[in-house]
Amino acid sequence: MTINKQSQGGKLSIALEGRLDTTTAPLLEAELKQSLDGVTELEFDFAGLEYISSAGLRVLLSAQKIMNRQGSMVIRNVNQIIMEVFEITGFVDILTIT
């Protein structure tokens, strides 16, 4: 998985490519841990993301929880497979997917 990060003031954009699973989720978690301070607007671009596992969902959930306190979080360009996962797991109800 590759993580492309773009920061502009209080806005942070993260584009993910590949698989967000048990192996790669800790990478994203570490990345978020050091980048989220002072961010008020977090945007994920999932155009290149092929797969998400429960470990990946956990990272998204914790990011959502942090952003609930300090701003907003949106996820863009979610493909069909990942959208199904979000639907099955009920994540559609707590995430902002556009």
Binding site: T89, G90, I94
Partner: peptide
Amino acid sequence: RSGFVLAGMENI
């Protein structure tokens, strides 16, 4: 009907 995961968020 898919509900949200357990332990994810309170008061679901």
